[in-house]
């Protein structure tokens, strides 16, 4: 399997001197194509910091982070937007939709960033919203949609960029379990059928079943045990019961 994300010896220190916060202390992590990985950890353990660096919106202090083979640690700020645009889709706990735009227009923003406009953008955004089951909500504004529907718009928006990697921070935390499941079904399908790499940060034990692999981070370090689910999804995947496995695959 190809590595979509390759993190090695990644260190992130916020601030310096006495007040320095060592958010990541030499983290190693690989994420493969077609894999849905759950990232668990207590509050403040460094989950958001880690996916922010992977997503190219936060610079690391040291170490290496390769996105589909391209090193992004040390890349100048001006180069990062393109890396994000070409590779990454973000999903947020709070959806982060543009309230003034309709569902369709929200999706079209990504297309616009990619230089796709006009009729082509209309067609593509319609397709994407249909794929997430919102074919009848094209003209709805976010304020008229339920939480689950908003998150599906956000997924369609992320997908519009055709990202190889989707990074989701607590995507189901604000949703009821029914909507949460729908979102996870969708993400799983994207991983398995479209071979995208999906990293989901979560506290939500209702969604553990969806993981191909679960990685736990504790106080800025990846626990050296990971759980891998094999094929039919029979194995256990609660972090405290993790099976020994080469943490850095």
């Amino acid at each position: 399997m190809n590595k979509a994300i390759e993190v090695k010896d990644l260190v992130k220190t916020y601030g310096s001197g006495e007040t320095a916060v060592h958010a990541l202390k030499k983290v190693d992590l690989n994420v493969f194509e077609g894999e849905l990985l759950l990232l668990l950890g207590a509050s403040g353990s460094g989950k958001t910091t880690l996916i922010s660096i992977i997503g190219g919106i936060l610079s690391a202090t040291s170490g290496s982070c390769k996105i589909r083979g391209t090193e992004i640690v040390g890349l100048p700020q001006s180069k990062l937007p393109k890396v994000r645009l070409d590779n990454i889709g973000f999903i947020f706990q709070g959806f982060n939709l543009f309230p003034a735009l309709t569902a369709q227009e929200n999706v079209e923003i990504t297309l616009d960033l990619k230089g796709i406009k006009g009729r082509k953008a209309k067609r593509k955004s319609t397709e994407l919203l249909e794929r997430v089951g919102l074919g009848d909500k094209l003209k709805s504004h976010p304020s008229d949609l339920s939480g689950g529907q908003k998150q599906r718009v956000a997924i369609a928006r992320a997908l519009a960029g055709e990202p190889h990697i989707i990074l989701a921070d607590e995507p189901t935390a604000a949703l009821d379990s029914e909507s949460g499941k729908l979102i996870m079904d969708l993400l799983q399908e994207l991983a398995h059928e479209q071979k995208r790499s999906i990293v989901v940060v979560t506290h939500d034990n209702r969604i553990f079943d969806y993981a191909d692999r679960i990685v736990e981070i504790e106080d800025g370090r990846i626990q050296d045990a990971e759980t891998e689910k094999h094929g039919d999804g029979e194995s256990l995947h609660i972090p405290t019961e993790m099976i020994e496995q080469g943490a850095n695959a």
Binding site: R84, L85, F92
Partner: peptide
Amino acid sequence: KEYGTLKAMGATNFY
């Protein structure tokens, strides 16, 4: 927050 989201989505400052 919308501007931040745009940036995260890959929008340049120029955009």
